Computed example of a mutant assay.
Amino acid sequence: MATDHFQPWLPGQGQASHVWSVLGAIGARTRGDFGPGATTPTFRTHPAVVAQASATLASLYPGRHWLGLGSGEALNEHVVGQYWPEAHERIARMFEAVDLIRKLFTASIAGREVRHHGPHFRMETTRLWTMPPVAPKILVATAGPVTARRAGKVADGLITTGAPYDRLAALLGRFSDGARESGRDVDGMQKVLQLHVSWAPTDEEAMANALAEWPIGGMRFSRSDIRSPFEFEQLARTVRPEDFAGRMLVSADLDVHRAHIQRHLDLGFDRIYVHNVGRNQAEFIEAFGREVIPAVRA
C-alpha cells in the first residue's frame, strides 16, 4: 500500500514521490496485490486520468492491483490552487468520481465509449484503450461512519486507519449496513486497515521514533485543512507521549504487537497493512516476520 502524497507530512520525512511510479516499481518487485491506500481523483487529478493509471497497472499485473480512493487533504490537493471545500463537498466529489471511474471501467471492458456530466466533473465521450478483462476493485478510504455506510452501497471495499476499537467496530458496522441495504454480500467485500505502530528494541526508542517520525499519530484533531509540512512541524511540537494512547501502539513488546493485530482481525478486518513509523525498517520486517505475523490467526 502506498498513499498518494504531493508533500510529506513533515519536512524531516524528506520525500513525496509520485504514487503511480512507485506502484509500478512495487508490482515489478513483489508477488502480492497492491494499490494506492488513498488517491484523490478530485483536485490534482481528474477521475478519468486516475482510471487510466489504475487500468494500466491492472493490465501490467493481472489480478494484483486494487484502487483505493479518498476525499483528500489540503496538504496534497491545495497545490493546484483550487478552492478547498468543506468535508461534505469533498466527500460528494469522491463518490461522483467513484461513479465516473466505474462507468469508464465498465464501458471500456465492453469496448464502448462513455461520457459523464455531473455536478463536479465532466468527461467527454471516450474509453480506456488499455483495460484488463476484469476491472480493479474500488475501495473507499474513510474514518467517518456516514461515508462508510455510503461506501458499503457503491464500493468493493473499505479502507481505514487505526483508531480506538469501539470506533472501528462501529465503522465496520455502518459499512455492513450500507452493503446490506443495497443487497450486497458484505462477506465478499474487502475490509482493509492501515495500522500505524512504533516498534523498536526498547520502549524508549519506540517512543522517540513515534515523536520524531509520526507525531501526527498523536494529533487529536482533524488534519484535512492543514496545507504545509511546516505547519505540521509546528503542531507536532505540542504532541506528548500520552497523546498516542488508544490511537497508535508504541511498544518494544512483540507479543503486545501480535495481540494488537489479532484484535483488529477479530473485529472483522480481512487485510491489515502494518506501518512501523520509525526508520528501523529492516529490523522491523525481520522481527515481525519471525515472531509476530506467523503467530497471528487469520
Results as ranks from 00 to 15, higher is better:
residue 114 V to L: 12
residue 9 W to E: 10
residue 45 T to W: 04
residue 129 W to N: 13
residue 251 S to K: 08
residue 230 F to N: 08
residue 154 V to Y: 06
residue 76 N to E: 04
residue 40 T to R: 01
residue 107 A to R: 05
residue 122 R to V: 14
residue 30 T to P: 00
residue 98 V to R: 01
residue 142 T to F: 05
residue 125 T to K: 14
residue 156 D to P: 06
residue 29 R to T: 14
residue 250 V to D: 02
residue 48 A to M: 11
residue 107 A to Q: 12
residue 178 G to W: 06
residue 265 L to S: 07
residue 244 F to S: 01
residue 224 S to E: 05
residue 177 D to S: 12
residue 114 V to C: 10
residue 59 S to T: 15
residue 56 T to Q: 11
residue 13 Q to A: 13
residue 86 E to M: 11
residue 199 W to L: 05
residue 48 A to Q: 09
residue 39 T to A: 08
residue 194 Q to V: 12
residue 183 G to V: 09
residue 289 G to K: 12
residue 192 V to Y: 04
residue 120 H to E: 04
residue 280 N to C: 04
residue 83 Y to N: 09
residue 43 F to V: 09
residue 33 D to G: 10
residue 84 W to G: 01
residue 295 A to D: 11
residue 40 T to F: 07
residue 237 R to K: 10
residue 53 A to Y: 13
residue 84 W to E: 03
residue 107 A to F: 05
residue 100 L to C: 09
residue 68 G to D: 02
residue 245 A to L: 12
residue 196 H to P: 03
residue 189 M to L: 15
residue 212 A to F: 02
residue 104 L to G: 03
residue 88 H to K: 13
residue 218 G to F: 01
residue 111 G to I: 10
residue 202 T to K: 11
residue 132 P to L: 09
residue 266 D to R: 06
residue 83 Y to R: 14
residue 5 H to Q: 12
residue 40 T to D: 07
residue 123 M to W: 05
residue 42 T to Y: 07
residue 278 G to I: 15
residue 282 A to Q: 11
residue 153 K to G: 12
residue 244 F to M: 07
residue 61 Y to P: 01
